[in-house]
């Protein structure tokens, strides 16, 4: 009997959690880490602009 090695996620950042099909697309966007990176950068950019002005 061979030893069963549990599979390890190759990349935690890119292989983020699956969302069931029934969940709305909006929820899929809001729970997507990739979405919050540009949002955070946009807010930081607007903040920077307000300091510039």
């Amino acid at each position: 009997m061979g030893i069963v090695i549990p599979s390890v996620p190759r990349n935690l950042l890119s292989e983020h959690t699956e969302i069931p099909k029934a969940t709305s697309r909006l929820m899929s966007v809001l729970t997507d880490l990739h979405f919050w990176v540009p949002v955070a950068v946009l807010l930081a950019g607007l903040l920077l602009l307000s300091f510039m002005h």
Partner: peptide
């Protein structure tokens, strides 16, 4: 969102 990023940049 991408369009907003472009305009601020």
């Amino acid at each position: 969102l991408a369009g907003c990023l472009w305009a601020v940049a």
